[in-house]
Design a protein around this nucleic acid. Structure first.
Length: 1139
RNA sequence: GCCUUGGUGGCGGAAUUGGUAGACGCGCUGGAUUCAAAAUCCAGUUCUUUCGAGAGUGUGGGUUCGAUUCCCACCCAAGGUACCA
């Protein structure tokens, strides 16, 4: 019987499905093993042969582990929320749920044909409400958590509130927003509920924050970086700008150190771990604060808020204003005497901000602060002391009066003030008050990894988006700066990073003060500084940093050399090791490391900075302005987010008529007719009518990103149907985490980091016991397509005088060489071709110059299914494909065929190079497809698909089949029938078998599937040559190959007399004894080049080998009379003769 | 730009720890079988060659008795670069 793969494969696929052969149990005597593929997105195009590559590899491993006695969990499902379905919905109006369902059905059908051992009873889809209920639940858990930096773990927010109520927020160390104000327990307890919510939001692991996005006003939507091409949208070509938007963020940065350290224990490739390390980007350095030295004239009056810290000042200003409106009696009395330069002509300000403090009165020109105690603005004693200290540090004198003093005898108070004013140094001589930072030490914070080079700072650069830019820019520079900011807003972040050639920037006109030298440092803005990195500002050290160097050269900013023996005439000296600092005051003469330490110490000493570890990892934006994603279980009361109670989950995705943003630019959910939450009824309702708004609040309009559902799906598979919890404790305890994960390296920093983050979070909160989701990870490379190209000319002949068109764009396909030659050298060959095609009379008239011949050339993709393995085109099929090719002519080879050009590209519909796995299964069988995909090359590398090569693997399976179909007495002319001999196998056959067991097992453990396929081929070739038909060899061979070619293995297994599936048959054991060799075929090299080989006994000694080799006549011939200088002998390996 | 991976015959690729470069398969060439074709089987197939041999693993250097493998510099290609999944 012939190898009828279609019949065999259908039979066993049916058997597996009916018997639930691969259904995994959540309890078993056997050890567990969890094999997972990266979550597929079911695209509309269906699977092409590139997709199953990783699934085949994981399936082989899963099946191998079953043979090895493991209880294997090998599930599959769909990451079914995503942009493509939404795009399709926008274009066609078709609901994404419907297209997604269809696509999944198609995927499933295709997957089933390949014979995977998936446990389909556990299938999940992220877009199913039963699934996203738990994604929403996890979001709520994140919202209800904060990160305790001391315990280094996530804790419930209720515990944080308790801490605040007991001791305020000054002692707790938490991962939080930058703009946190200190408050006491008393203060906390007095805060309104809303105030508390606002503060807690700054601590939660998911929080609302302003983030920069790529906004396309015309499309009314946010675009991904790769949806932007040259600053305009890919769709439509509309302009895109950077815009700030309030969005949900995930505080992944709190986990940075754990994500970094956790890598060490993972069995991932070094390159992948390295990618994650770089992404997390830990750098140790210092925060340095440069006080802003100058403000433009008049500005300090108009804007009293030049404080340290961004949003703090805004809050303080509000408070100060309030204070001004409601003075105490004493304050009001004093102010009436101080205002309008009444006292000795000195100008006083009331309720003024200095640093982060509000003082009652201040005379800036004398740096004198007047405080009146005991009023309604009374602060705690602790706070007062701290404030006095900081004010003193900034050079302010503080004068305190009690309420009674002011009210009892204002004359005495005024006299005291007056005396003080007279004694104090006058700061107003330096150009008004503008040289004194009006509010004290407002500064620019920078993060630097090289505080040792601080004396080399000659300018500062801020990101153009930096909050301070608008405030510090002088009138003279304003126009230039604003134009620059506008220009930058048009460039994407990636563009800005990639483009190092164009140096651009603008001077703000402002200066900062060097913390040590007190020299003024000009403040520039430049787009090489990114707002999201560090503090969005750098201290530029042109002598030590190339980008600063280039910037300085370009704008002719001085470059200060602070290195010993470094040449900085051409480029910056960025080396660290062995660098000695010079020209740097107390750092001079110190080596890099010492200088670094000392610089940080000094900075801390003078209060201008402190050592800090910085991470490049930014908090992850979690909002998407899309329809087809998980809705947030969130509604808003007075703009503050509220979580829907867990018992009312899932919050279903609403129906909308249009999947586009609303006319007012809101996300697509804004189109939903019913998208409000009734807090009383706990359900989704229509917008409130007049008078019934009390319990009805708007729901969140954004949806979650693609990575929400895929960050935790591995745990859902452990207990997929559970509607009480995301997975039961028993299931989680049994399966723990994924033992082997296979997928593309493109997920290195996205999915793989986010799922590690969520796993750590869920562990902290006690929902999981594991710290990591994926123990071992293998990357799969992409399978590329081999595109086919046709080259053509479309020539026209026009009458020079009458302009009559005689031949209109006639299409002639030409050989590739002619095309290339025409482009490179000229059209000689092309003309010859056209001459043959053109009517003789016309040709004569062309030669006479009466007619003009135009013949442009071009190329086009040709569908690969029209091309055979010899690159010859099926001309008729191609002509019928599209009307424009109907009348095309073809210049053929001698054989009469038109030969296409070939090139390797990504497999894609638009390139007409997609190969469908269904077709391959139909023509060659799933077993052939599986083995061929593995045979193509190493699993982790990209390689082109070439269907022509598949016959080799197919023939191999036919040969394998024949080994078992070797009826000793086939009837004359009849087919071979199944036969295995029960006799002892030959020594050669056993050697072949055990050699194969050894190699294949090693390969499978090393995920070197391509070499194991080769090994099988060698094995079958050898056994065929040996005419081996003994059960002793063929039975273990069937098990050995079963993970790779399961259908044929099942068939042979049943023919061998087994009634159970082969899937759990015991894996054959390798035995060394069959491989023992007594001789070695030694390569004999001369100066490292192998010239001939010699068969010598394995146990021969070094001396004997040398003697034997030297005595050989071929050795003497090679040496040609010379005496060798040296003879190197590695027993069992080689002989090398030098000389 | 930065990070990661890779570069070996006409093609996919192999080569364990520095030890016979090109296993295995495709393609190609020749042969057997056949009226013929398909299928199958056998032999050959890195390049150059004056048939002695010589060269050769992206390029240029280095270490070594010996380098595809280790080191340095460079070139090229692919993936990622934070809203494609």
């Amino acid at each position: 019987m012939n190898y009828n793969f279609n019949k065999i494969e259908a039979k066993w696929q049916k058997y597996w499905a009916e018997n639930q052969t691969f259904k995994a149990s959540n309890s078993s005597e056997k050890p567990k093993y969890y094999v997972l593929d990266m979550f597929p997105y079911p695209s509309g195009a269906g699977l092409h042969v590139g997709h199953p590559l990783g699934y085949i590899a994981s399936d082989i491993y899963a099946r191998y582990k079953r043979h090895k006695g493991f209880n294997v969990l090998h599930p599959q499902g769909y990451d079914s929320f995503g942009l493509p379905a939404e795009q399709y919905a926008i274009q066609t109006g078709q609901h994404p749920a419907i297209t997604t369902k269809d696509n999944i059905a198609r995927y499933r059908e295709q997957l089933d044909k390949i014979g995977f051992s998936f446990d389909w009873s556990r299938e999940v889809r992220t877009s199913n409400p039963e699934y996203y209920k738990w994604t929403q639940w996890i979001f709520i858990q994140l919202f209800e958590s904060w990160y305790d930096l001391e315990a280094d773990k996530s804790r419930p927010v209720s515990e944080l509130s308790a801490i605040f109520a007991a001791e305020g927020n000054t002692r707790v160390k938490a991962a939080c927003d930058d703009d946190i104000e200190d408050f006491s327990a008393e203060a906390w307890n007095k805060f309104s509920s809303e105030e508390k919510q606002r503060i807690l939001l700054k601590y939660r692991l998911t929080y609302l924050a302003e983030t920069e996005v790529n906004w396309c006003p015309q499309l009314g939507t946010v675009l991904a970086n790769d949806e932007i091409i040259n600053g305009v949208s890919e769709r439509g070509g509309y302009p895109v700008i950077r815009k700030k938007m309030t969005q949900w963020s995930m505080r992944i940065s709190a986990f940075a150190e754990r994500l970094l350290n956790g890598l060490e224990k993972l069995d991932w490739t070094d390159s992948l771990k390295e990618s994650q390390r770089n992404w997390i980007g830990k750098s140790v350095g210092a925060i340095v604060e440069f006080p802003i030295l100058s403000f433009p004239k008049g500005e300090e009056k108009a804007k009293p808020g030049y404080m340290t810290g961004g949003n703090n000042s805004h809050l303080l200003i509000e408070k100060a204003k309030e204070n001004r409106k409601n003075p105490t009696e004493a304050e009001a009395a004093l102010w009436s005497q101080l205002r309008n330069k009444q006292l000795d002509g000195y100008k006083f300000r009331q309720q003024h901000l200095i640093d982060d403090f509000i003082v009652d009165f201040v005379c800036l020109s004398k740096k004198l602060v007047i405080e009146v105690d005991g009023g309604i603005h009374k602060e705690t004693k602790e706070y007062d002391e701290e404030r006095t200290k900081i004010l003193a540090d900034s050079g302010f004198e503080v004068l305190r009066f009690k309420n009674e003093e002011v009210l009892g005898g204002i004359e005495t108070v005024l006299e005291k003030i007056s005396n003080n004013l007279a004694q104090l140094k006058d700061y107003s001589d330096q150009e008004n008050e503008s040289n004194i930072p009006p509010s004290g030490a407002r500064g620019i914070k920078v993060f630097t990894t090289r505080p040792d080079t601080i004396f080399g700072v000659t300018f500062m650069t801020l990101a153009p988006e930096h909050d301070l830019v608008k405030e510090i820019t002088t009138d003279a520079q304003r126009e230039e700066v604003e134009a620059y900011i506008e220009a930058t807003a048009k460039r994407s972040e990636r563009e800005r990073m990639a483009d190092v050639k164009t140096i651009s920037g603008a001077f703000t006109g402002a200066y900062a003060e060097h913390p040590f030298t007190k020299e003024p440092i000009p403040i520039w803005i430049g787009d090489y500084v990114l707002a999201g990195y560090g503090t969005g500002a750098v201290m530029a050290v042109p002598c030590g940093d190339q980008r600063d160097y280039d910037f300085a050269k370009h704008f002719e900013i001085p470059i200060k050399d602070i290195f010993e023996n470094a040449d900085i005439s051409e480029e910056a000296h960025s080396g660290k090791e062995g660098t000695v600092i010079a020209n740097s005051d107390f750092l001079s003469g110190l080596e890099y490391k010492e200088a670094l330490q000392k610089a940080i110490l000094k900075l801390e000493e003078i209060g201008a900075g402190y050592g800090k570890t910085n991470y490049r990892l930014r908090d992850a934006v979690f909002s998407r302005q899309r329809y087809w994603g998980e809705p947030f279980p969130v509604y808003y009361v007075n703009g503050l987010p509220q979580m829907i109670d867990v018992e009312y989950l899932p919050l279903h995705l609403p129906e909308v008529e249009k999947y586009l943003p609303t006319e007012t630019g809101e996300p697509p959910l804004g189109n939903a007719k019913k998208w409000f939450w009734n807090r009383k009824l706990n359900k989704v309702v229509a917008p409130p009518l007049e008078g019934e708004g009390e319990d009805i609040f708007p729901l969140e309009l954004n949806t979650m990103p693609g990575w929400a559902g895929s960050s935790w799906y591995l745990f859902r598979y452990m207990d997929a149907g559970n509607d009480e919890v995301f997975a039961s404790e028993a299931a989680l305890d049994y399966w723990e985490n994924v033992d082997l994960y296979i997928g593309g390296s493109e997920h290195a920093t996205g999915h793989l980091l986010y799922s590690r983050f969520w796993t750590k979070f869920l562990k902290d909160r006690g929902y999981l016991k594991v710290e990591e989701p994926f123990k071992k990870l293998i990357n799969q490379g992409m399978i590329l397509g081999t595109s086919a190209f046709g080259y053509y000319t479309y020539y026209s002949i026009i009458n020079k005088f009458t302009k009559e068109v005689i031949v209109d764009r006639k299409l002639v396909f030409i050989p590739k060489e002619v095309y290339i030659e025409t482009l490179a050298e000229g059209s000689d060959s092309l003309e010859k071709i056209i001459d043959r095609d053109v009517d003789i009379n016309l040709k004569e008239r062309i030669d006479k110059g009466e007619l003009i011949l135009g013949m442009p050339v071009n190329y086009t993709h040709i569908p690969v299914e029209f091309v055979n393995s010899s690159d010859e085109l099926d001309v008729e099929a191609f002509k019928n494909w599209r009307p424009e090719f109907k009348d095309a002519e073809f210049v053929t080879e001698e054989s009469g065929a038109y030969v296409v050009g070939r090139e390797v590209e990504k497999m894609s519909k638009s390139k007409y190079n997609v190969v469908n796995p269904d077709d391959i299964c139909e023509d060659f069988g799933a077993d052939t497809l599986r083995m061929y995909e593995m045979f193509l090359g190493p699993i982790d590398q990209a390689k082109p698909w070439n269907t022509a090569g598949i016959t080799g693997v197919h023939n191999f399976l036919k040969k394998l089949w024949k080994l078992y179909y070797s009826s000793p007495n086939p009837s004359e002319g009849g087919e071979q029938t199944f036969f295995v001999s029960e006799e002892k196998a030959s020594a050669d056959a056993l050697k072949t078998l055990h050699k194969t067991i050894k190699k294949v097992t090693e390969d499978i453990e090393n995920f070197s599937f391509n070499t194991s396929v080769s090994t099988f081929m060698i094995c079958v070739n050898e056994l065929s040559a040996q005419k081996c038909n003994s059960r002793e060899v063929l039975e273990p061979l069937a098990v050995l190959i079963a993970p790779y070619a399961p259908h044929i293995a099942e068939e042979l297994w049943s023919k061998l007399g087994h009634s159970e599936s082969i899937s759990t048959a015991t894996y054959p054991e390798f035995e060394e004894q069959f491989l023992v060799e007594s001789t070695k075929n030694y390569p004999i090299s001369f100066n490292g080049k192998m010239r001939f080989t010699m068969e010598l006994p394995m146990d021969m000694s070094k001396d004997e080998i040398e003697k034997t080799v030297m005595a050989d006549e071929r050795t003497q011939k090679q040496l040609d009379g010379r005496t060798p200088k040296k003879v190197i002998i590695v027993p069992g390996k080689i002989v090398n003769i030098v000389g």
